Amino acid sequence: MSINEYSMATLDGFVGRELGVSDWVVVDQARIDAFADCTGDKQWIHVDVERASRESPYGGTIAHGYLTLSLLAALGIEIGMIPADAAAGLNYGLDKVRFVAPVKAGSRVRGRMVLLEIERKSGGRVILKVANELQIEGEDKPALIAETLVMVIAREVGTVEKTEAAA
């Protein structure tokens, strides 16, 4: 998806605005198990369905916090957080992350993103600070809130510098 009139040159005009809300994504047991296999985090509350249904305070397995955090990148791409005229968008860091509520296996989540700040750098690079909320369908509390930093790189370096000079 692309955001109307959102580009490397117009980023300043989007500061403080919602970039969008993604479609719902299912966080099913297969996804949780695959994440556990990739990371080696096979804690029972994530992967042992029988034990979690007996012993977990959530009535079953839950997603890893870092699994839910990792979904933000793909949801941001879906929303169009990376301007279409950027050559690349890279994870740059996190300023704040709070895991607010567990994501039970089988739940659907979606991302809501607001552009908080931009910081123009040399070489056609811009750091985006984005407020993220990963919402859980049917729940009052989000799964997480996070401020992510994304470096976007212009296809043509002169485009971003020319915009800076004009400002």
Rank of each mutant, 00 (worst) to 15 (best):
R98D: 09
M81Q: 04
L75G: 04
E78M: 03
E78D: 08
N91E: 00
I82P: 00
Y92V: 10
V97G: 01
L72T: 10
A84T: 06
A101G: 03
A87I: 03
N91I: 04
K104A: 14
A101D: 03
A101T: 13
V100R: 02
A73D: 06
Y92K: 09
P102E: 13
A101M: 06
K96P: 00
L90E: 15
I82E: 02
A105P: 11
A86H: 01
P102I: 15
D85L: 06
L72P: 00
V100L: 13
A73L: 11
F99P: 02
D85A: 06
A84E: 14
K104P: 11
A88N: 13
P83Q: 09
Y92L: 06
F99Q: 01
A73V: 14
G76S: 15
A105Q: 09
A87D: 12
A101N: 09
V103D: 00
V97R: 06
K104T: 14
G80P: 06
I82G: 00
I77Y: 10
V97M: 06
P102G: 08
I82M: 05
A86R: 00
R98S: 14
I79L: 04
L94G: 12
V103M: 12
A101S: 13
G89N: 10
L90A: 14
A73C: 04
V103R: 00
L94Y: 12
N91H: 15
V100E: 03
G80F: 09
V100S: 05
I77V: 03
V100P: 02
L90F: 15
A84D: 07
L94D: 05
L94F: 11
R98Q: 07
A105V: 08
D95I: 10
A84G: 10
N91L: 05
A84L: 04
A87Q: 15
M81I: 05
A87S: 14
P83C: 10
A105I: 10
L90M: 12
A74W: 06
A87R: 15
A86D: 02
A101H: 02
E78S: 12
L75Y: 05
E78V: 03
P102W: 01
M81R: 07
G93P: 05
E78P: 05
I82F: 04
M81K: 02
N91D: 08
I77M: 08
D95F: 13
I79G: 04
K104R: 11
V103G: 04
A101R: 00
L75D: 02
F99L: 06
A87C: 06
P83R: 04
A101L: 10
V103P: 04
V100A: 11
A86W: 01
V100G: 03
Y92S: 03
L94M: 11
D95S: 09
A86P: 02
D95M: 12
A73M: 07
M81L: 14
I82Q: 01
P102K: 00
G93A: 13
D85S: 08
E78I: 06
G93F: 11
L75R: 11
R98Y: 07
A105N: 11
N91A: 10
A105Y: 08
V97T: 13
A88Q: 15
A105R: 01
V103Y: 05
G80N: 09
V100C: 07
D85N: 12
A101Y: 00
L75I: 03
F99A: 05
M81V: 12
L94K: 09
I79S: 07
A74K: 15
G89D: 08
